[in-house]
């Protein structure tokens, strides 16, 4: 499941990069920083990513998840920090 989630995130980031053209998102990996310190996305792009991911998760896993989180916008503990932390966060939500 982890690999599948990671693939969804990477694809969503690449799609988003068509608009924002950030160098660090050309070939995203597990380590790619998404939001917060050194993150590639600003809060506007993050909202757009969240909406894409929620839809993709529903299509692939048949599950309605809301990625909005109290800690989402926190600079230090945000699950949106990196592809890896976001993968873990989504996995938790799907298993809930």
């Amino acid at each position: 499941m982890k690999n599948q989630i990671e693939a969804i995130i990477i694809e969503a980031l690449q799609d988003l990069n068509d608009d924002i053209e950030s160098e660090s998102l050309e070939n995203p990996t597990k380590e790619t920083k998404i939001f917060g310190e050194e993150g590639a996305l600003d809060s506007l792009a993050l909202v757009s990513l969240i909406s894409d991911l929620e839809e993709a998760i529903h299509d692939d896993f048949g599950k309605e998840v809301t990625l909005a989180d109290e800690k989402a916008m926190s600079q230090h503990r945000s699950p949106f920090g990196s592809v890896e932390s976001l993968t873990e966060y989504i996995e938790l939500l799907i298993k809930e």
Partner: peptide
């Protein structure tokens, strides 16, 4: 408002 905005922003 929250859910529809996510669609509109696209």
């Amino acid at each position: 408002l929250r859910e529809v905005s996510k669609v509109m922003l696209k």
